[in-house]
């Protein structure tokens, strides 16, 4: 055998499926890398006929989009897989759910439509639980955020501390319960995350800190058409509950 000769090209996928999954409970502490390893192993345990990339080290064809930060719960993560053989999406969902660890659940599996998955994911709805914060304090802070022209925040990135304006990405912010907010945020660069919004709230009103770490829960992801959030799978307006 001659080494160094590139291996044969893999055939392109026969079927592409798009998946919405949830990461809740203790699994919310899984990082995106942790999730992808667990997902790939579940694919193998369930015997899913994956298509593989070409090259010396073939990988199963999986594309991930907009991973939630480690520690956040989510009902609205999305990915796309390429298969070597067509399968029934409902059956794939059931078998993969049986193979995934606790707290990782596939919600929806559909045949990929036209356009890229990422194009349909331009905004997110988050719920933010700040713990026990008095209602008037929180309402005041939210009003403060909404009237601000700019919201300078800082975040540690790989390249060091970075300053940016969180305001343009915030499409809506409202109090929905005790210490609990709902945030509609557009995906921009740099990506504004719910903890950036908490930082902005705390700058306006330090009493927004309850002493407990804030909990984040992504409820929806979709494309923002200027009026409503559209489901990335069927283009219909998402019904927010």
């Amino acid at each position: 055998m001659t080494p160094r000769q590139p291996p044969e090209q893999q055939a392109p996928p026969v079927q592409k499926l798009r998946i919405r999954y949830a990461k809740t409970g203790r699994a919310r502490f899984a990082s995106h890398r942790d999730f992808s390893r667990a997902f790939e192993r579940a694919l193998r345990r369930a015997g899913v006929p994956m298509a593989y990339s070409s090259g010396f080290s073939p990988h199963p064809r999986i594309s991930y989009a907009n991973a939630s930060p480690t520690g956040a719960a989510t009902d609205a993560e999305y990915l796309e897989i390429g298969l070597a053989r067509a399968v029934d999406p409902g059956q794939l969902r059931n078998e993969l759910n049986a193979a995934l660890p606790d707290g990782l659940v596939l919600q929806d599996v559909v045949e990929a439509g036209p356009g890229s998955l990422a194009d349909g994911l331009t905004a997110s709805v988050w719920e933010i639980d700040l713990g026990p914060v008095p209602g008037d304090v929180l309402a005041g802070a939210v009003a403060g955020v909404l009237v601000s022209e700019t919201l300078p925040v800082q975040r540690m990135t790989k390249t060091g501390m970075r300053d940016f304006d969180a305001r343009p990405a915030i499409l809506a912010l409202a109090v929905i319960g005790e210490g609990t907010l709902r945030l509609l945020v557009e995906h921009q660069a740099p990506l504004v995350r719910p903890d950036d919004v908490v930082q902005a709230l705390t700058r306006i009103e330090p009493a927004c800190q309850s002493g407990q770490p804030a909990m984040f829960h992504r409820r929806y992801q979709g494309s923002w058409d200027g009026q409503v959030l559209l489901d990335p799978f069927n283009g219909e307006p998402l019904v927010l509950t």
């Binding site: 899984a30 990082s31 192993r41 660890p101 606790d102």
Partner: peptide, 11 residues
């Protein structure tokens, strides 16, 4: 840091 190492629940 790396909270996942403390949660258990592995397959």
């Amino acid at each position: 840091n790396k909270p996942i190492q403390y949660v258990g629940g592995e397959v």
